[in-house]
């Protein structure tokens, strides 16, 4: 790897520009107890931080492991340098999704369409059997749902991929 030719030294600014990342001293605390570090390939938060620091754009762009994170935030609790590794993972995902439409999670299409990832409100009979009233969900309120969609359409990733949203 040649950082002069292969790295974008300003990558961290594009990805995680809070100033927290730089404090990382590669101690490995984040990875030693991370659930997704048991995966194959493992999620190695420490290595992701390193890639961002070096600016290894290409390698990071191809890296699927940020999406294996379980969001438990243990790394954030344990990190002695307060790098906030989970936030960094979210930022890496955002950067990938912003630059690669195949990274756009299908769940946001569902949310755009009905307000939720799940089909909330379709289990009418089960709920009735349990003595539950119907929920005041947005799916059943076209006016509110339209406003919600309009709002989302102003946000960057949805705007850039409006075709996915029937727009």
């Amino acid at each position: 790897m040649n950082p002069q030719t292969e790295a974008n030294k300003d990558l961290w600014k594009a990805i995680y520009n809070t100033g927290d990342l730089q404090h990382c001293f590669n101690c490995s605390t984040c990875i030693s107890g991370c659930p997704a570090s048991f995966g194959d390939p493992p999620l190695l938060v420490r290595n992701l931080a390193r890639k961002v620091m070096y600016g290894l754009e290409e390698a990071l762009f191809e890296d699927d492991t940020p999406w294996a994170c379980v969001s438990c935030s243990r790394c954030e609790e344990m990190c002695p340098m307060d790098v906030k590794p989970f936030e960094m993972i979210l930022h890496i995902r955002q950067w990938q999704a912003s630059n690669d439409e195949t990274r756009v999670p299908p769940s946001i299409v569902e949310i755009y369409k009905r307000g939720y990832t799940q089909a909330v409100g379709t289990n009418v009979e089960t709920r009735q059997a349990l003595g539950l009233d119907p929920l005041p969900i947005i799916t059943n309120n076209p006016e509110q749902l339209a406003m919600f969609r309009e709002m989302l359409m102003k946000t960057p990733v949805i705007a850039a991929n409006d075709y996915m949203f029937g727009g």
Partner: peptide, 21 residues
Amino acid sequence: VRCRVQEVVREPDGNLRIRYF
């Protein structure tokens, strides 16, 4: 071993488990 570990787990037999990279 150059690795800061996140935790120590006490196994039922009293052994202390450390996972490290």
